[in-house]
Design a protein around this nucleic acid. Structure first.
Lengths: 234, 234
DNA sequence: GCAAGTATGTTTGAATTCAAACAAAGAGGT
DNA sequence: ACCTCTTTGTTTGAATTCAAACATACTTGC
């Protein structure tokens, strides 16, 4: 782990990702750079198939995924795995635990690819610094929006999970994903097992339903690609 | 609906509730009063068994429940009801939708008792006013904490819902509630139907499980009161 | 006190899901 | 090319849940 400013070339590489992150919306490249220095952002790397954070840990940093992919998961004592969300470059995680002092993580974050992570101390982010950092205000507004969007994301997951049948959970999720991506033809960020863990159903039962839905002509799927028939969203 | 400052006696009545709301943590009575004026808080009343907000609405206000109780629910086209959370005096709602411009409510808020609601415009809350309002900073920090806590609350609900069996969903929820209230003997804010809708299971199946759990000596329950046996939380 | 309505527990058969196994296809390494 | 490991789909019987009844308190209003 090292200070951001010491490695300008890495910062530059990340800028393209950070610019897409809602936390930095409305900030210029220079302003993002200044903010990160002001806040004291740090970079860490994490190997594939390793935990980035584990349930039980404490953290006072909001983490931005700069490269790679990861899953936010919950695992119980019997090995049942619940996939809370998937993380793509530009996504952030651990922010609610960082915002509450001494909060213990109830989830783990697992790298599904080699990852680079930008860590931002929450206290420094939400504590106004001197007038030298004029865009700090904007950052804090962005943070609030980011929290709100995460809440809506969980809202959506709950909507899918609230359906009683595997079939309805699938259609609820796939319809929402089509809406989000603005097309009936889209890729999902999960493999079959991960999707089952996200919807909290058995992979086998889900596979059966996917087959049925295809036979009924409601959708086509190959691996992580889906094409919904227009009447699948009813 | 009327301006808060025009009805000092009502404001005073609400102060005891607002003081307990995390949004005003660390503020004195006077500071809360000043803030509410500064932000332009308004009061509305809502009759029992009426919707306070309905899915499809837009709002730019975070709402604080000052008196009464309510449920945040989702209803689908087939009448299936999903209870997202229950609301008690001091709780707030609609904040993620208020924080995102033009966001459409995906949930409804239903008054289960006569309610009084304090509405605070989100834009005015997160936009710094002049130096005259020195505790605005604190308010914004509190707002971030509030968002974080709401996220953790949804996290918990997802944890319960992720269990595959009704029995496990029940034990997950009841254990969490016991932990939150710091006692194995506690009341829940739901009746049986509401609890079933919160855990997304059939009320009948849930009743069966509750009976089994009682026969096994893992818990005792009468209406909304529960007493967990110490080994129920394993 | 009575009637109507509500909340809770119980029962039942049908539908669904779980859980474990297996087969087939594909990816990756040697 | 070959072997191994992973991913995905399929099958099966057992367990669970759904869905719709119904019975029994308990409320509420008159």
């Amino acid at each position: 782990m090292f200070e951001f400013k010491q490695r300008g070339e890495i910062l530059e590489k990340f800028l393209n990702v950070l610019k897409k992150c809602p936390l930095f919306a409305g900030l210029s490249d220079d302003e993002i750079l200044t903010s990160l220095k002001c806040i004291g952002a740090k970079v860490r790397k994490n190997a594939k198939n390793q935990y980035i954070l584990q349930a039980g840990d404490c953290t006072d940093c909001i983490s931005l995924l700069a490269s790679g992919t990861a899953l936010v998961i919950q695992e119980d004592l019997w090995g049942n795995r619940n996939v809370m969300t998937n993380l793509m470059p530009g996504d952030y995680f651990a922010e609610p635990f960082a915002a509450i002092p001494d909060a213990v993580l109830s989830v783990s974050v697992f790298a599904t690819e080699n990852c680079e992570i930008v860590e931002i101390n929450m206290n420094r982010l939400i504590t106004m610094c001197s007038a030298a950092c004029s865009h700090h205000n904007r950052l804090i507004k962005n943070l609030i929006t980011a929290f709100a969007q995460k809440t809506l994301l969980f809202n959506e997951k709950i909507t899918h999970m609230s359906k009683r049948k595997t079939r309805d959970k699938l259609l609820s999720y796939l319809s929402a994903e089509a809406a989000r991506q603005g097309s009936l033809s889209f890729d999902i960020p999960f493999d079959r097992q991960q999707l089952a863990d996200f919807l909290c159903v058995e992979r086998a039962a889900m596979s059966v339903e996917l087959s049925k839905l295809q036979k009924e002509g409601l959708l086509k799927t190959f691996h992580s690609h889906f094409e919904l028939s227009p009447n699948a969203t009813n």
